[in-house]
Design a protein around this nucleic acid. Structure first.
Lengths: 104, 104
DNA sequence: TTGACAAATAGACGGACATCTATATAATGT
DNA sequence: ACATTATATAGATGTCCGTCTATTTGTCAA
């Protein structure tokens, strides 16, 4: 799962519900049911989206009894974005520009 | 075109042909026909993909007589990736990690 | 072991989209 | 004006994918 395929990454992000789930799982662990409660889709649909995110390496999982908890893999987000920028913005002064973006 | 919508950005990237076109237009200006020659799809298909990239602000255009030249908007790639990281990797030390990614 | 709950899987369905052919629009040269 | 070339647009078609219902798998408690 260390190969950061830009296409796989982009496809995983290319859905509204999935980005919503990513936002929910950012900085915290949530069970599938907790995610279902916070979205407008059914449990199987959430499971489906979590599978897509898992295959893209974008979430970490932790089993606990009957429940499975998910959290966003922030490190992977950074590495995938980094890959994208290396590929599609090779002429840019990345460290400088990133500094600007982070500050404002 | 300054609103960097993460979903629009991801959808624009979520296609193999489109990423291929982005790679071709990276660091140089190409006419539509030149792009067609370097891909395996027809001219209308290339025009369609260029329209998607244009609507996402990912390409710049220059008209010259009959031809239209396209080039990748690297600055926007950086800003969109920056937005994604701010949204989905808020706990990461971005400047540090980006440094690591750029070096290796 | 049975019942209840959590999550994953299977299968169906509808809409979104990538691609094509055909045609329109626009610019240039004869 | 007409022919030619470059690009965009229209419309059709097939495939992918997001969503649902129904069911299965797995875990825990009584």
């Amino acid at each position: 799962m260390s190969t950061s395929d830009p296409l796989l990454f982009a496809k995983a992000l290319a859905d509204d519900t999935r980005q919503q789930i990513m936002g929910l799982c950012c900085c915290r662990w949530l069970s599938v049911n907790q995610i279902v409660e916070k979205t407008r889709v059914t449990q199987p649909t959430v499971s489906h989206h979590l599978a897509v995110l898992r295959e893209a390496g974008l979430v970490n999982t932790r089993d606990e009894g009957k429940q499975t908890f998910y959290t966003l893999n922030q490190d992977r987000v950074v590495r995938c974005c980094g890959q994208l920028m290396l590929k599609f913005a090779p002429e840019q002064q990345l460290t400088v520009k990133m500094g600007e973006i982070i500050e404002k």
